[in-house]
């Protein structure tokens, strides 16, 4: 009963994180196109754009931040796995609980500060400093979402570790366990 509920929570988080990660990946071709267009416009048309610089930086930031949770789901974040790979599953769960707690603490601060910067950006109408001067607030909203999803994914991973520690059974099967 409880396990079913927990499984549902985990699967929901997995789904949202995966969809966001895939959505962010669709920004990659757009990013490359924007930079290529700036080169084309400057060199062949003799007309540098005023927007490509900021648009490319925003897209870069969106891809980089929003992909964080999905990279965690795929266990793609870099870790030093020398000891990690040589200990038992239970020990590994303890390791995860410690390091993910630290990660969540860091991400909570990012979320909190981004929320504050969002409010500031709205209050003072903060913009980028270039001539085009696009507004900044959306970037902080994006960071709130990105760090929120990352927290959710880490929380879900910790839930699995806790479940295993207490029951000795995997909450969700076919969990990739190579720590990679």
């Amino acid at each position: 009963m409880v396990a079913t509920f927990l499984r549902g929570v985990c699967r929901s988080i997995d789904l949202v994180v995966m969809l966001t990660g895939k959505a962010a990946s669709y920004l990659m071709p757009i990013l490359a196109f924007v930079v290529a267009f700036e080169v084309f416009s400057r060199y062949f048309l003799g007309k540098p754009t005023i927007w490509a610089f900021d648009v490319s930086l925003f897209l870069f930031g969106y891809v980089a931040a929003l992909g964080g949770a999905y990279a965690q789901q795929k266990r793609a974040h870099i870790n030093v796995d020398i000891l990690y790979l040589s200990v038992s599953h239970k020990t590994r769960c303890v390791f995860n609980l410690l390091s993910f707690s630290l990660g969540i603490f860091f991400l909570l601060i990012i979320l909190h500060m981004s929320l504050g910067k969002y409010e500031e950006a709205i209050e003072f109408d903060y913009r980028r400093q270039g001539e085009w001067a696009p507004p900044m607030y959306h970037f902080w909203v994006m960071l709130v979402i990105a760090s929120g999803l990352f927290i959710a994914q880490l929380g879900r991973d910790m839930l699995l570790d806790l479940y295993y520690l207490f029951t000795g059974q995997a909450l969700i099967e076919q969990e990739s366990d190579d720590g990679n």
């Binding site: 003072f124 903060y126 913009r127 980028r128 400093q129 270039g130 001067a133 900044m136």
Partner: peptide, 10 residues
Amino acid sequence: APFQSMHAGE
């Protein structure tokens, strides 16, 4: 001692 151009949007 900031350089104001960097903060034109703020």
